[in-house]
Amino acid sequence: MEKQLDHLKELSEIRNLMERSSRFISLSGLSGIAVGAVALLGSCVACWYLGFMPNEYSLIMHLYTTPNSVLMENLTFLATDAMFILVSAILLGIYFTNRNAKKKSINIWDRTTRRLLLNLAIPLAVGAVFCLILLQHGVLYLIAPATLIFYGLALVNASKYTLDDLKYLGYMEIGLGLLSAWFYGHGMIAWMIGFGVLHIVYGTVMYYKYER
């Protein structure tokens, strides 16, 4: 019986080692929740500033019906708001993931981290360039759907190098992106669902599944 327990322990040790050496497993559910909350907060601030309801038909139409002097001011505010969301989302994501790694006493910066980031970055970089091209051609109404689609593809791609569950978040982002491309003009609400609500839901599920 004791021998049997030894073998079981050996097998689980091997499993753990294989998992730990090939996948980045410190990704924390709390990161997802924090990122989602920041995204929701940031987009609410944008709507409030513009005096705009998120379910209103088109943010772009709204922007273009404002006088030129106000437009510049609005765009500057939106860009600042977006940068603020991006930076705080990244910082919060790193903070909670680092905390999780410390708790599991895993090194946060190793080959699995670099591989995860690289595989996340490739579709994201392509998406960013594609969105700039859309901007250049003035196809503004497809930018929000395109960011969701490419973000989803990046998640599906990266899920091979971290918790497998990440791919489900990816599929939902892609689906949402396609939907909002078909019924275009609801970019703002799609963004709030995709980057806000879905992150919070995913983060909560992950937190209860792996960290409790």
Partner: peptide, 17 residues
């Protein structure tokens, strides 16, 4: 056993890893 386990799931690994 550990060395082999790591090399099974990674194409390669260096000494420090």
């Amino acid at each position: 056993l550990g060395i082999m386990a790591i090399l099974m799931v990674n194409d390669f690994a260096d000494f420090n890893t």
